[in-house]
């Protein structure tokens, strides 16, 4: 991957953000983004999108769940 166009760069946004690119790809794409407003914007929105998803999924279990699970595990243990 020596030469990339905007389409290539945009297609690789997820691999870029999830650190799944090879080093040479990473280099070429990083260089492209630094000089291309359109691709930079595309990456920015994907970052915001990811943060929004992370935030929305931040839900803690009820406290009783730990007790329920431990009770179940003790039952299993007593059957062993």
């Amino acid at each position: 991957m020596k030469q990339v166009d905007c389409e290539d760069v945009k297609r690789n946004v997820h691999e870029f953000l999830h650190s799944e690119l090879h080093e040479d790809q990473l280099e070429v794409i990083t260089a492209h983004i630094a000089n291309c407003d359109s691709c930079e914007e595309h990456y920015d929105i994907e970052i915001v999108f990811n943060q929004v998803i992370q935030r929305s999924c931040d839900e803690a279990p009820a406290e009783e769940l730990a007790e329920r699970v431990m009770k179940r595990l003790r039952e299993i243990q007593d059957h062993d």
């Binding site: 359109s38 914007e41 929105i45 929004v52 935030r55 929305s56």
Partner: peptide, 22 residues
Amino acid sequence: ITARTVRSAEAEAMDNLPATII
């Protein structure tokens, strides 16, 4: 390929959506 300002508008809209909607 959308213009820069539109992308920003989308990011802003997305950021304002309630967690339940997401």
